[in-house]
């Protein structure tokens, strides 16, 4: 054998040379969990409160009232056809017996989207202004979008234990990147000479941001929010593995018990919700001509 002239360590990678990354991360996670105890519990209570409120709001009214409200919202945003479409979709969810579960899922998605807007838009603005921050955050966003979500489900569960809060966080991590990216992109896309015009008239940085950059970036930012909501919905099934509840549970049970019918019903309801939310957010962005 030609390889026999090589020393052993070039043939088989020596086990003592393996970087113990996994134990480092475990140690780090332990430290983060211990040291950050107060922070985590504070965060958990805030999230629990927000989510609880959202749930309460969505479930306080009977299904019939909710449908009427959604039809009105749909009509206001996108005209009669969107209103009717929204109503029919929700009626189908109710008819499939999934209403309560759908509302739980909807609350989770809406809160995740809300968090994405509150955190993602300012972060995107900062990234557009500071190139160094842009360079740091971009790979992090890539990581958040490509890292299999199960990988961060584990530490999240370790910190918050099973329940809706870790599910919400996992959903947020997975779905926030588009809002950040597109806010950054939208602001960067504002034409240079328009900015110069604003500056030449004596705008302050804040005036430039609020009166020129953000309004011009708004369609792009809203496209990001729309994607964020869609991605949050895509996380529903995975989130239900760690206790999110809602429609994802139906799908999970369908898979676990080989109950094809049950799985499909849950899946169809998720799709209906997705379509409704997508149309509503998209219509909200398109300015009336």
């Amino acid at each position: 054998m030609i390889f026999s002239i090589l020393p052993d360590f070039l043939i088989e990678y020596p086990s003592q040379w393996i970087i113990p990354l996994s134990s480092w991360i475990e140690d780090a996670t332990d430290i983060i969990i211990e040291r950050g105890d107060l922070l985590w519990s504070l965060m958990a209570s805030v999230l629990r409160f927000t989510l609880g409120e959202a749930n309460a709001i969505l479930s306080i009214l009977p299904w019939s009232f909710m449908i009427v409200i959604f039809v009105i919202i749909g009509t206001l945003i996108g005209g009669r056809s969107l209103g009717i479409g929204t109503g029919l979709g929700l009626l189908l969810i109710a008819a499939l017996g999934m209403w309560d579960l759908a509302m739980i899922t909807l609350a989770l998605v809406l809160v995740a989207a809300f968090l994405s807007i509150v955190i993602g838009i300012p972060l995107g603005i900062l990234m557009s202004r500071y190139e160094s921050l842009n360079q740091i955050i971009r790979p992090v966003l890539d990581l958040m979008q490509t890292l299999p979500s199960f990988v961060y489900l584990i530490p999240v569960v370790m910190i918050f234990s099973i329940g809706r809060i870790p599910a919400l966080l996992a959903t947020f991590i997975y779905s926030v990147p588009p809002t950040i990216r597109l806010t950054n992109l939208g602001i960067r896309q504002v034409p240079e000479d328009v900015l110069e015009a604003g500056l030449s008239l004596g705008s302050s940085r804040l005036q430039l941001l609020t009166k020129i950059q953000l309004p011009l970036a708004l369609p792009t930012i809203m496209a990001g929010v729309n994607q964020t909501v869609m991605m949050a919905l895509a996380m529903v099934v995975i989130a239900s593995m760690i206790g999110a509840g809602g429609l994802g549970v139906e799908v999970l049970r369908g898979v676990g018990q080989l109950d094809v019918g049950r799985g499909f019903v849950g899946g169809i309801c998720i799709v209906i919700l997705a379509i409704i939310i997508d149309r509503l957010t998209q219509e909200a962005v398109t300015p009336p001509e």
């Binding site: 000479d193 110069e196 500056l199 030449s200 004596g202 705008s203 302050s204 309004p215 011009l216």
Partner: peptide, 20 residues
């Protein structure tokens, strides 16, 4: 900022109006 507000005005090649 004060100078740009009161002493100088600028006109641009491609107008650079605020489209919104």
């Amino acid at each position: 900022m004060a100078l740009r507000r009161k002493d100088v005005g600028m006109v641009f090649q491609h107008f650079a109006l605020f489209p919104h």
